[in-house]
């Protein structure tokens, strides 16, 4: 990955020097080697801290909606991120002409928790080369297989290549196997009603309502989220069964046709709650019922947001 970081740095340097963009959203090194941070580059000196590797956890498209529409934004995008950016363009959150997408075909994000489980928390060094990941723990080098550490969402990734990127760094990768994408959904669908509810309960009810899943999600950009609405209140405010279940189910439904299965919600959750089984199921329904996949272009409205007078059905809903 160091070569890729160097190439990325050169690319961003050029964009800033030529004033193609005002800011570039990427990642930078942090004190803790396992925790590269989202970063916002506006001048060349800062670029020394630029970092790109499999540990970059966040979906950077999340930050797009913080800028005025006339800001020219450069953004580093992997497959899922590029599709989130496209979905945001469709939802008119930033004009395409003021975006420059630096695409990286993605080999998958590593789950920090899977690494720590194999080593221990105090990792002092990290490097990766192809399928080999090497971490330094208690002064000793520990070699791990990349494929053992991938985040669950990345194991199921169908589209690792950025869509509509302005430039692509690295060679495109083969698309993911759609049958693998379906495995987790089929596992959930195979359960009977009571088992599905028990699964949902076990996950949803650990929730502490910190809303990290919402804040980590590029598509959750509402100024006022339904749970924050106080007059009248639309859901119970507490961590009761009703409160946490309502949050998880309604959050998922708001993602139908908008989620790109990036898994940033699960990676952000402090209570290790699984939630992509809900959104992945909805995404799969969108594909089967409407032949729609989020973010595969930057002009197709998601089925639940589109409307036309010639609709073959009598009612929109």
């Amino acid at each position: 990955m160091p070569e890729l970081t160097t190439e990325l740095r050169k690319n961003i340097e050029q964009l800033l020097t030529d004033q193609v963009v005002d800011v570039v959203i990427a990642f930078k090194k942090a004190d803790a080697p396992l925790r590269p941070q989202p970063a916002f580059f506006r001048n060349l000196e800062e670029l020394e801290d630029l970092e790109y590797n499999g540990l970059c956890q966040n979906n950077l498209a999340n930050y797009l909606t913080r800028y005025p529409h006339d800001t020219k934004i450069g953004i580093v995008v992997r497959g899922c991120e590029s599709r989130s950016v496209n979905a945001l363009i469709v939802e008119k959150q930033h004009p395409r002409e003021n975006l420059y997408m630096i695409g990286i075909p993605c080999q998958g994000i590593l789950d920090i928790r899977k690494i720590i489980k194999k080593t221990g928390e105090d990792v002092t060094g990290y490097s990766e080369d192809g399928d080999q990941v090497s971490v330094v723990y208690e002064g000793k080098e520990v070699n791990l297989q990349r494929s053992d550490l991938l985040h669950d969402s990345c194991l199921r990734c169908a589209h690792p290549n950025p869509v509509n990127a302005d430039v692509l760094l690295g060679e495109p990768l083969p698309d993911g196997d759609p049958t693998i994408v379906r495995l987790a959904i089929e596992e959930f669908e195979a359960l009977d009603r009571d088992e599905r509810y028990a699964w949902f309960q076990k996950e949803a009810e650990r929730c502490i309502r910190c809303y990290a899943c919402r804040e980590a999600c590029p598509m959750c950009y509402c100024t006022e989220c339904f749970v924050d609405h106080a007059t009248p209140r639309w859901t119970e405010s507490d961590i009761s069964q009703a409160g946490t279940q309502a949050w998880h189910i309604i959050r998922a439904f708001h993602q139908a046709g908008r989620c790109t299965s990036c898994g940033a919600c699960e990676r952000a959750c402090p209570m290790d709650i699984k939630m992509t089984y809900l959104t992945d199921k909805l995404n799969n329904d969108m594909l089967e019922v409407y032949q729609f996949e989020t973010g595969m272009d930057d002009n197709t409205q998601p089925p639940f947001a589109s409307f036309n007078l010639d609709d073959k059905n009598r009612f929109v809903i």
Binding site: Y211, E215, A216
Partner: peptide, 9 residues
């Protein structure tokens, strides 16, 4: 705070 998500963790 530029990269802060604004969650409650």
């Amino acid at each position: 705070a530029e990269s802060c998500l604004g969650c409650g963790i």
